[in-house]
């Protein structure tokens, strides 16, 4: 599945070369009827993209409180949060609110 992932608000600093936009191909998980959920995506990001301080991005099995998530420019809290199912070409944005203002 092809997805576009964007990291902002300082989260990009946790990734290689501080790149903000990542066009990725996520292999569909074998279990769970081959669906890519946000929960699956988070662990995929942790394994494949995060280079340092994963605790700035994740806490328990979700994002760290204070990190905003948008799926196709819609607050993930309206899309089912961790259970939201992603589709081909979806755009997922992660923004940290934890940096100074």
């Amino acid at each position: 599945m092809h997805l576009t992932l964007e990291f902002g608000g300082g989260l990009e600093l946790l990734l290689e070369n501080s790149t903000k936009v990542h066009k990725v191909e996520v292999t569909t998980p074998k279990d769970g009827q081959g669906k890519v959920t946000m929960k699956f995506l988070l662990s995929w990001v942790k394994e494949n993209l995060i280079k340092e301080r994963p605790e700035m991005f994740l806490k328990a099995d979700s994002v760290r409180p204070g990190v905003l998530v948008l799926i196709n420019d819609c607050d993930w809290e309206l899309c089912g949060g961790l259970d939201a199912e992603l589709e081909e070409k979806d755009v997922v944005v992660f923004i940290s609110t934890l940096h100074g203002g």
């Binding site: 420019d73 819609c74 607050d75 809290e77 309206l78 899309c79």
Partner: peptide, 20 residues
């Protein structure tokens, strides 16, 4: 679970909700 964009704004009732 509802897909992105499947809920309507409670204020205008017309456009898709974008945030909670």
């Amino acid at each position: 679970p509802p897909r992105a964009g499947s809920r309507l704004c409670v204020r205008c009732g017309e456009r898709k909700a974008a945030l909670k």
